[in-house]
Design a protein around this nucleic acid. Structure first.
Lengths: 214, 214
DNA sequence: TACAGGGGCTTACAGCGTTAACCCAACACG
DNA sequence: CGTGTTGGGTTAACGCTGTAAGCCCCTGTA
């Protein structure tokens, strides 16, 4: 009883929020929940398992950022919303972003949970891209490849920014980010004018079955 | 005498090559060069300074990858060469790549050396982009912004690959990478046909003074 | 009532980065 | 020649880390 596992998890989140990964130690964690360090091992195999839980929490936060974007009416807006949300997540939750997407050791492990989340999130992006293609907003092509392309661009920008690889302040970076995304999306548009072939049904793209991304 | 600093540095590189960053400890390092752990502190302020030296070494390796690309005749080939080299570096020297571009703590510090190298490398890319624009291979625009865009795309792809975020084997990823780069460069081409305005002088782009990237 | 097991506890180990104090050989200078 | 000074090594020690081993008690069940 008393759900010590849960209490350890939230203590880890608090500690992480305050001092980052470096600030998390078994003893500090234990003290925070009023227990001995070794007691934790009754509930977690090792420290990595705690970090896994932390990454899961971070991914849940990411989901909160992404979800509202899907409420937009047209797929292009939804896609842009996802991309914006990715930026906002990285900027507003830098510790979580680093933990989930930067620290190599933490994620080359790739727990079940992480992989599941990764796949689900990515699927959201693919669906919007597919819908954009079907509505003639993008020229036809492989939606998976296109989504990878967009995600990579966003991820690269955000990652390099997180590592201070671009000088400049937050506002400058935001302009850079949106400019680059704009450019990338512009390159996906159909060659002639806009929207050469309207879709047969309005919601065809949303419900399309997408092949597995493996 | 006896250049202990140098010997420590190479010992660090050997240890790093074998076991990665995690495998480096002051005591192991000291034992390797036949000295006490604390003796190291006469030559390095702390462990971070050793890691800095390691990052520098990694960046030197990156330079070796990049440099041959500049030998190509036309700027587009040079640019592609740089981008290819970036991929090859990440794939063939994963530990160095992770150290220099992934581990957050290691590079948010951003030593003088790192910043200098970063700037120099980036400048190489900007020059090729500028040359491409002047020769009408790319449509006109801000070469810095465009270079950032290309670099981010490449970096995002490579980073996500390093974190196993795409399934699939090395060959699959290589196709993905080149496909995405192709797409990105395609989006930079002039709108009508190709090459609408040849340059007045052949080498104008190479020697153009580029505004500082700050 | 006896037993089993979950879940704490203490103790301990091996390793970490780093500081303080010491010591010795080489050199500079009056 | 004697005498600092100093560069570059030493030992000892501090306070941390993750984690294993063994003990013990409380609870639930046969």
């Amino acid at each position: 009883m008393s759900d010590l596992r849960g209490r350890i998890t939230v203590a880890a989140q608090e500690l992480f929020a305050g001092e980052g990964v470096e600030g998390i130690s078994m003893r500090k964690l234990a003290e925070r929940v009023g227990v001995t360090a070794t007691a934790i091992y009754r509930h977690f195999r090792d420290k990595d398992e705690i970090l896994d839980a932390l990454i899961s929490a971070g991914l849940a936060v990411l989901s909160e950022y992404l979800e509202p974007a899907l409420k937009a009416k047209d797929p292009e807006r939804r896609l842009r919303g996802l991309i914006d949300a990715y930026l906002r997540f990285a900027v507003e939750q830098p510790k979580y972003f680093d933990l989930a997407f930067l620290v190599p050791s933490a994620s080359t492990r790739m727990s079940e949970e992480l992989e599941r989340h990764n796949r689900a999130t990515f699927k959201m992006a693919i669906e919007q891209v597919a819908a954009c293609m079907q509505m003639g907003i993008f020229r036809p092509g492989d939606p998976i490849e296109t989504a990878v392309y967009l995600w990579s661009t966003a991820h690269g920008l955000v990652t390099l920014h997180r590592m201070n690889r671009f000088g400049g302040d937050a506002a400058q970076f935001e302009r850079l980010y949106h400019g680059a995304i704009e450019r990338a999306m512009e390159g996906l548009r159909p060659p002639g004018g806009r929207r050469p072939a309207p879709p047969s049904q309005r919601s065809a793209g949303r419900d399309a079955i997408l092949k597995d991304q493996a």
